[in-house]
Computed example of a mutant assay.
Amino acid sequence: MLKGFKNFLMRGDVIVIAVGLVTALAFSTLIKAFTDFVINPIVSRFQGGGSAGLGWQLGEKGNDATYLDVGQFISALIYFLIFMAVVYFLIVVPYKRSEGRRGVTVFGEPLPVKTCPACLAEDLPEAASKCRYCATQQPPAGAPA
Rank of each mutant, 00 (worst) to 15 (best):
D36E: 12
D64S: 11
V14S: 10
T105I: 11
S75W: 01
D13G: 10
A121N: 15
K3H: 09
P94N: 11
F46I: 14
G12Q: 15
A118S: 14
A135Y: 09
I91R: 03
T35R: 01
E126Y: 06
F80W: 14
P144N: 12
A118W: 04
A65C: 04
V106F: 03
S129T: 14
M10G: 08
L2F: 12
C116Y: 00
P140F: 03
I39Q: 01
D36G: 04
F107I: 02
T136R: 13
N7D: 15
T105R: 10
E109H: 07
D123G: 12
Q57M: 07
V113F: 02
P41S: 10
F80C: 12
G103W: 02
L54T: 02
Y79F: 14
V19W: 01
A52L: 04
A85Y: 11
P112R: 00
G108Q: 13
D36V: 05
A76K: 14
S28A: 13
F5H: 08
V87P: 00
R101V: 05
A127P: 00
S75V: 15
L25H: 04
G55T: 02
K61G: 04
A121C: 03
R45I: 07
S51E: 09
V113K: 13
F8D: 09
V22H: 05
L120S: 14
E109K: 15
R102Y: 07
K61I: 07
G50R: 12
I17P: 01
A76T: 14
S98C: 08
S28C: 08
G49E: 14
